[in-house]
Nucleic acid binder design. Structure first.
Lengths: 339, 339
DNA sequence: CTGAAAGCGCTTACAG
DNA sequence: CTGAAAGCGCTTACAG
């Protein structure tokens, strides 16, 4: 099928390309009659502007880039969902890339998006990202940038997060309030800010409530997944620690732990209470249903795009933009895995 | 930051734009010396070609579009993952859109992708898609098209699927082999091909093994999700049917049903066996662990892009392309919810 | 109200 | 081996 161009319409109508272009864009200096004529012809021929040419002229692609550590993950796919929906509503398309928690890949992907000349970039950092020069590069190219969930405090851009420290504090407090005295923590890797913050919230909650912090009760879950939760729980059993509560950094890790407890005949919550983090959809379907912290992925996705849009608009209008940080609310979801 | 162009490099070096362009693309008719000079200068200035201009000239965007019914879904996010990885490996970026199981939205999105002039489109159909004119339109625009998982037999394009009928047959047979005599089916909506095929596989397995098919044992799960599974199970209990096995169209529905059984003190698999479909990651973490059919999402994603690539290559080379259909293997995963 | 012309930044057929 | 020129399809400042 031969693509229809402005030239084609102009020839059919015996007028200039300029006038056709202006008529289709409703310029005020084109007569009503001409506009009607042009629009009719365009419709008849199923005219669609060549975006490649439009991009080149306007220096805009109406496309934004998104980098997440993992796509197959309830929280991130919820964020993706929110971003894609909000973007589509505003006439933007979203290119998705997955860093696989690798700094090296993430760096390459930011570069890819810069080369692609996307109108904006949204990113949640990989666990091992420390150096942020790739993000600065994007900003030097004048590409609006928004970080969500896994952020770096060092980069001066808009951010949307939850208060991980406070949320972890509340999760731990929930265990304390329900009578737990010896609370272990399954923590995430050492680098990511939210892993650090959740650990700090846990520690603070213990201290504020007269329980002493014991570093031997902190187990590492590098990838914060189901397998990590299993491993940590097995280690905890092997260590024969006197523990009556666990605050796990993610629901996945919590579920892994509960499976191990079940295999060992350890009852949840009678013998040990388990608290997750994220409110992953299936937390409610397992037995016992998992108590957790609700982390609003979809809302974070929509908010991420909205922040980006604000900045893209400001850029286009030539108005200086002050980065903003938005903090989303979380809350404790009490189910059956805690008393 | 001022963007570097070929012109800039040419001026710095006192040579023509043509030569710079050719040098960077390693044309054989440029001297080694000039090439070296140009490449050095390009590197020094961090030259990146303006993709908008390249797109306009080459009529290629190196971008492909993907439409799925739902992003937040273990199977589809696995497919997305496979597609995005394979595409990136081949130098393509992926634009993602979600139809939300709506034909109307799907239609609009295909249109969007055509307007965007993507190099190819991959799609898994919405439940209520019957009319496929939007897909034909894409094909008329000469855009390579691949359908995966939820396909329409009426469209002549490449497809990648599993044998839903056979898989459902095997799932049902697994129940029969383990001693079930009265097997219910939680089916999906009436339109989607895979919902039909799974139903037919179920029916055929009964007939082949001397069990008579009873339409009152087929329950509708319109959205094939957790809530639907719950509703169907509650109805089944209310109907007081003599049932000792269920084949549910998805793991989600199966898990919903199991939750209801648990609430009613009905034991799985002692009182009733439950078979899911998909091998959703968390099937293994619930209690009892769910027996199911493994549906290879990641592989399907990679395969989808590979098929698309083949066709894009053929198109570029001007070679006629014969649509292909690829069928991926599935297998029964026996866990604890069946005997 | 209409249109000729320049230009966005590249690629490539062609001439020398 | 090098480069002038045309052209991809649009937008917009400018002239009339």
């Amino acid at each position: 099928m031969k693509e229809v161009t402005l030239k084609q319409i102009a020839e059919n109508l015996g007028i200039s390309i300029t006038t056709v272009s202006k008529a289709l864009k409703n310029y005020s200096d084109v007569s009503k009659k001409t506009k009607a004529l042009v629009k009719e012809e365009a419709k008849k021929l199923h005219y669609k502007p060549n975006v490649f040419a439009v991009n080149l002229r306007t220096k805009e692609s109406k496309t934004v880039g998104l980098i997440v550590p993992e796509i197959v993950h309830h929280f991130f796919s919820s964020v993706i969902n929110g971003i894609v929906e909000e973007a589509e509503r505003k006439g933007y398309l979203v290119i998705i890339l997955q860093s696989n928690e690798s700094y090296k890949l993430e760096r390459k992907q930011v570069d890819l998006l810069i080369s692609k000349r996307v109108d904006g970039i949204m990113i949640s950092l990989a666990n091992d990202t420390v150096d942020t020069s790739h993000l600065l590069e994007a900003m030097e190219h004048d590409i609006p940038l928004v970080m969500f969930d896994k952020i770096s405090k060092l980069v001066k851009c808009s951010k949307i997060i939850i208060n991980d420290r406070q949320a972890a504090y509340n999760a731990t407090k929930h265990l304390i309030d329900s009578g737990c005295k010896n609370i272990a923590h399954f923590r995430g890797a050492l680098l990511p800010q939210n892993s650090i913050d959740r650990f700090l919230g846990y520690k603070k909650a213990l201290e504020d409530h007269g329980l002493k912090y014991d570093s031997s009760l902190v187990y590492m879950c590098e990838r914060v997944d189901y397998e990590d939760g299993r491993r940590a729980a097995e280690q905890l059993i092997k260590d024969a620690k006197k523990v009556d509560g666990i605050f796990a950094i993610t629901d996945m890790a919590a579920v892994g732990a509960m499976t191990v407890f079940k295999e060992h005949g350890i009852k949840v919550p009678e013998d040990i209470s388990v608290m997750g983090f994220s409110n992953w959809f299936l937390s409610q379907a397992i037995t016992p249903a998992l108590s957790t912290i609700n982390q609003p992925g979809y809302e974070m996705g929509r908010g991420t795009f909205k922040l980006l849009r604000k900045e893209m608009k400001a850029k286009k209008a030539g108005i200086p933009f002050e980065p903003q940080t938005k903090v989303l609310e979380t809350f404790v979801v009490k189910r059956e895995s805690t008393k």
